[in-house]
Simulated assay, not measured.
Amino acid sequence: FENQNFTLKLIMNIQSNTSSSWDSEIVTEAVLPSVVLGLCFLIGVPGNITVIVVIFRHFKQENFTMKLLLILAASDILCLISLPMWIYELFYGWSFGETSCKLMMYMVFCSLYGSLLMVTLMSVQRYVQVLYSQYWVRLRGTGEKVLLVIVWVVACVFASYSIVLGKVLMDDQIPQCKTNYSSDGQRLAVLLSQTLLGFVIPFSVMVTSYCCLHRKVKQRTFFINQRMKRLVISIVVTFFIFWIPVHVANVAEIFSILLKSSHPAASTKLEKFCSFSENIVGSLSFINSCINPFLYAFASRNLIQRCLHARSHDRIC
């Protein structure tokens, strides 16, 4: 019966409030995140499947950019298909066992890191391929495959802590699949690594690559294409918008740990803020996987048009 407590609380709240004003805690902890996650699932999964179909139909497999888009779409699908289970957990708690909790957390983090690294690699590839094409040519074939394997190995390593720390914990008598830290030091290390490896370093690489590329080739045809400029700007801005809330919450949690002994009152307030915003900011991280197909593939529809033109002349793009 413990798994039903949260649902009963929600039902009683609806029945007892004729003014239809819901309890803010319920709205924040379950309703808003579930709406966001549900929309991400309904839009993101078909969108990414469409990207995969379009790439297989219109692009040759030797195109490294298309390989990146293909793997990005696959990793996004891997992340998004877990959303129904997380939505179920928001209302009923985690009732699938601890092993599935660890595996599901690992799959999500692995796919998120994989998607993140693929986006970062796109920016590096665009920079090197345009300005130092002679070096990129040397990577063709085996070198590109090795690079992709390295990216996935790194993503799997980055996500490995979830296998060790993932655990089913009781939260207000409701089982929740969460990260279980053995100490504040361990918690601090994980949060710092998430912020550095999951935002600061990738975002810095993306911004540096595109800024250097724009500065060095602005007189060339690459950036005369206004659609390409908009796509590049969208990549950086979208990444920032949908990941900064997650890492702001991480930084707040880091400070709550550091201030625990010297400023306990401030630490408690930060802890409450992190607990209050946990589900909301967590759900925002899935939006990026949802809009990736529109951002990288559909926004580059000129590529598809060129491929269709090439196919009409018996060529493969």
Rank of each mutant, 00 (worst) to 15 (best):
L8K: 12
K9D: 10
L10K: 09
I11A: 07
N13T: 09
N13F: 04
I14H: 02
Q15T: 12
N17C: 04
N17H: 12
T18E: 12
T18M: 11
T18D: 11
S20F: 14
D23R: 00
S24V: 11
S24D: 10
S24N: 07
S24W: 05
I26N: 02
V27I: 08
V27S: 06
T28A: 11
T28D: 05
T28E: 12
E29Y: 08
A30E: 02
A30V: 09
A30K: 02
L32H: 00
P33N: 04
V36Q: 00
L37F: 00
L39S: 04
C40Q: 03
F41W: 01
L42R: 00
V45M: 03
P46I: 04
G47Y: 00
I49S: 02
I49V: 05
I49Y: 12
T50R: 11
V51P: 03
I52T: 01
V53T: 13
V53H: 05
V54A: 11
I55V: 13
F56D: 09
H58N: 12
H58M: 08
F59G: 04
F59D: 07
F59N: 04
K60M: 13
K60Q: 15
Q61R: 13
E62H: 15
E62W: 11
N63A: 10
T65A: 09
T65K: 13
M66A: 08
K67E: 04
L69H: 08
L69F: 10
L70W: 08
I71C: 10
I71L: 15
L72V: 03
L72C: 12
L72D: 04
L72I: 03
A73Q: 06
A74H: 04
A74V: 13
A74L: 15
S75H: 10
S75F: 13
C79R: 05
L80N: 03
I81R: 00
I81N: 05
L83Y: 08
L83D: 02
P84N: 00
P84V: 04
M85F: 12
I87C: 11
Y88V: 07
E89D: 06
L90K: 07
L90R: 12
L90W: 02
L90D: 08
F91D: 07
Y92T: 11
Y92P: 08
G93M: 06
W94C: 08
W94K: 05
W94V: 08
W94M: 07
S95D: 14
S95G: 09
S95C: 11
S95R: 10
G97F: 09
G97V: 14
E98A: 15
T99F: 14
T99W: 15
T99V: 15
S100E: 14
S100D: 13
L103Y: 10
L103W: 11
M104H: 01
M104R: 12
M105E: 14
Y106T: 00
M107V: 15
F109A: 05
C110S: 14
C110W: 09
L112S: 10
L112H: 05
Y113A: 06
G114A: 10
T120F: 11
